[in-house]
Design a protein around this nucleic acid. Structure first.
Lengths: 348, 348
DNA sequence: GGTCTCGTGTGGAACGTTCCAAGACTAGGG
DNA sequence: CCCTAGTCTTGGAACGTTCCACACGAGACC
């Protein structure tokens, strides 16, 4: 029994592979990164040895030399009730899958909720990540500004609301279009006066969606006066607002800025003995799990989050390969998922 | 204007700091990693320079030398409808925060859904992560077995169902206890015959929870014969099962293995014109967003996911510092969140 | 006064990779 | 036959950090 016998064989390195293949280290490196430089038989031989010993390049060494970590930073925000938080993992999952295809990984980091910049520069200075994906553009874009200033690559999910002249790459979903789809659907189903339950005026996203509702109402030639309400994103606030609007019997439909609000309306209907769909139409926003499971099913605007993630990775890839981004801004369109809350027939 | 002027100053390194502070590289390294080795004034001087130039150690270099990346791998599973998926981001968020406190980060990776091992050894061989957190112990623990075999550290969320003799560190929530709490609560509120809606027998977690219901029923001296049902985790299956059970007028309460099933019961009640809480009691499991927003609010068993994450990080920390783990298995207890679906008074 | 210890600080080497400049071999042209 | 151009391969250096062995000076002890 040899005394220095290791519990398992040490990790194979470039040198190990080179020796076994009878070539130099650099040749093995080329086999991995520039295979076209090698003669066919040499390449085949090296590859065989790589497979045989199960060699994988050491990321740290590669990162040290090339100054690129193949890691993408994503600040994982505090789970805030309501908004699009619940839909976040649909997005993150596709992001992980899409980045994997280019050999990148997603690194999550936390940050002080009161400091939108916290965490970014630490990772950057430690050269732990190559780029960032920024998802919170609700409250301006301080993180994006910071990264621009230090010249770090990033892509945002969300347009630069405050600065239309910003030239950084971003992907967003046309919320106004989604609200318009929702409203048009309700009008088509036969509702004349469609109310809007939206967020406070400070929310850019909320105002954008509201604009879609207004546009659809205007296009139908219906006045939207007194039908639009701004409240906080919370079931009870929506329930109470719905009760108030339903005092006017001509109001028979609600388009909402979120599923939470839509569910609040359903609560109000339940309390009034009104049937969702048959009596009053309701549309939510985000197609969250809540919309899917709540009784009797809430029609909702679905954001193409998978596509958003794919576009973001595509932009990241372009930015990281130092190409100029020809089209840095991409706006995607949401779709409508119809459920029983907008079906006039009460048949199941 | 100097011709070689860079857009921004290059990253400061250990050498930069050493030179400015008039000490050697090693002394700066010690200031960071072994401050007790330095004289007080030297330490102060070095720290001042570090702060002044904004130095952060390069992770790649450190990782290369110390062979530890301070990264924790987490395979981000496909979002599967139902189960505890919806609650996953509550868990992940705390995990990120807790790991940050020890200077670690979470790296997400994807894997072929059909291959539970996919992705693990690639990260491992590339020395990209120090350890893993494994969250899917439903279908056995092939990933854990792989990691054990190659000697890689890991902690699982979920006990080793198939192998009680397994000695790896894990954290889990006592599902049986949760179901027991749910059932006892329903009995206390005045329901005599509490039905159980659970998953198929193949689910270890499902059977564990069911055992809690059976225990509570037995303790109350009530027969549970014919009251336990095994179905797939889906709203409609639960709705139909509830309709069937409600044909027996003595059945006035349901404990469920998931919120999805609980919501299915609420659908059935709505269709029968029965009032949740007042007429029939319903308890779900997981305290998902759905339980919180669905009308009129679903009482549910809440898993202490934040605590689970904290315990996992604690175990990871112990494992990574090569200490022997004194208590590798930790079972946490869930709590009951009471909402209107179990309130007999119909007052709001 | 020499030696031994202790508290501090130093410079060389190493981690595993890729960049760089140059070497070895092959083939083609004068 | 030599020179050159081109193809393929090579060893040395470098990335920024930490490990290691050792140097230095001060005080304690014999």
């Amino acid at each position: 029994m040899s005394p220095s016998r290791r519990h398992s064989d040490p990790q194979p390195t470039l040198a190990t592979v080179a020796e076994r293949a009878g070539v130099s280290r650099q040749t093995v490196s080329n086999a991995l990164n520039n295979p076209e430089l090698l003669r066919e038989d040499t390449l085949a031989k090296v590859r065989a040895v790589i497979a045989e010993v199960g060699y994988t390049p050491n990321r740290a060494a590669r990162q040290l030399r090339t100054r690129s970590s193949h890691m993408i930073g994503l600040r994982f925000e505090e789970a805030q009730e309501g908004t699009s938080n619940a839909t976040m993992d649909r997005f993150v999952h596709t992001l992980v899958e899409a980045t994997a295809r280019t050999g990148h990984h997603i690194v999550l980091f936390a940050g002080d909720p009161d400091d939108p910049l916290d965490g970014y520069d630490e990772l950057l200075r430690a050269t732990a990540v190559d780029a960032f994906v920024i998802t919170d553009t609700y409250a301006g874009t301080p993180a994006a500004d910071l990264l621009s200033r230090v010249g770090a690559p990033y892509v945002t999910f969300g347009r630069p609301w405050d600065d239309p002249s910003a030239r950084h790459p971003w992907v967003d979903v046309a919320g106004a279009h989604g609200a318009r789809l929702a409203t048009e659907h309700l009008l088509e189903v036969g509702h004349a006066r469609v109310a809007w339950l939206g967020w406070e005026a400070a929310s850019r996203i909320g105002e954008d969606r509201r604009a879609g509702w207004e546009a659809a109402m205007a296009a139908a030639g219906t006045s939207s006066d007194g039908l639009g309400v701004r409240i906080t994103d919370n079931v009870d606030a929506a329930r109470m607002a719905a009760h108030e609007l339903l005092e006017d019997p001509t109001v028979t439909a609600f388009a909402c800025a979120s599923d939470t609000l839509g569910i609040g309306v359903l609560h109000a209907l339940a309390e009034r003995g009104l049937r969702p769909g048959a009596d009053v139409g309701v549309v939510g926003f985000d197609d969250s799990l809540g919309a899917q499971v709540t009784w009797p099913g809430l029609t909702s605007v679905r954001q193409p989050l998978e596509q958003v993630a794919i576009e973001i990775v595509d932009l990241l890839h372009t930015v990281l390969s130092h190409k100029t981004v020809t089209e840095p801004a991409r706006m995607l369109e949401p779709t409508l998922v119809v459920r029983r809350s907008t079906r006039r027939d009460s048949a199941r």
